[in-house]
Amino acid sequence: MKIKVLSPFSFRPGLGAPVREFGRGVHILSVAEAAHPFIRACLADGLAEEVPGVAVQPEPPKDQQPKDQQEVQTEQQPEPEQTEQPVPEPAQKRTGRK
């Protein structure tokens, strides 16, 4: 969800959570932030307004979040074709002296 803040405010989603400052302008909210009663009250009181046409995107469960970019890029690269290489003959041991 996107909101346009008309009058700046601070938001702390829970005890021990970091404070998020909302200055004037457009801000993107997570699903949890958009559903929080304080944010809903700020919208109702006119401190901010919802930007129309932007749907709230559900957050994927933590075990289904995308892998970091390096892993994703590695998976997208095609594997080189494996060609059969000749195996060298083992060296023969010399017995005795010349």
Rank of each mutant, 00 (worst) to 15 (best):
M1I: 01
M1D: 08
K2E: 12
V5C: 06
V5S: 08
V5F: 03
F9Y: 06
F9D: 11
F9C: 12
S10P: 02
P13S: 14
G14Q: 13
G14D: 15
L15P: 08
G16T: 07
A17W: 08
V19D: 15
V19I: 15
E21R: 14
F22I: 10
G25S: 09
V26F: 04
I28Y: 00
S30D: 14
A32Q: 15
E33W: 01
E33K: 05
A34L: 09
A35K: 07
H36S: 02
H36I: 08
H36Q: 05
F38T: 08
A41Y: 02
A41Q: 13
A41E: 09
C42L: 12
L43D: 03
A44G: 09
A44I: 02
A44S: 14
G46D: 05
G46W: 09
L47N: 13
A48W: 04
E49S: 02
E50T: 06
P52N: 00
P52S: 05
G53F: 03
G53W: 02
A55I: 03
V56Y: 06
P58I: 12
E59G: 07
P60R: 13
P60F: 05
P61F: 12
P61G: 06
D63I: 00
Q65R: 15
Q65L: 13
K67W: 08
D68Y: 11
Q70Y: 04
V72M: 10
Q73W: 04
E75W: 06
E75C: 00
Q76K: 13
P78L: 10
P78I: 07
E79N: 12
E81S: 13
E81Q: 14
T83N: 10
Q85D: 09
P86H: 05
P86M: 03
P86N: 06
E89P: 08
E89I: 07
P90W: 00
P90T: 00
A91E: 11
A91W: 02
A91V: 07
T95F: 10
G96A: 02
G96T: 02
R97K: 08
K98H: 07
K98Y: 08
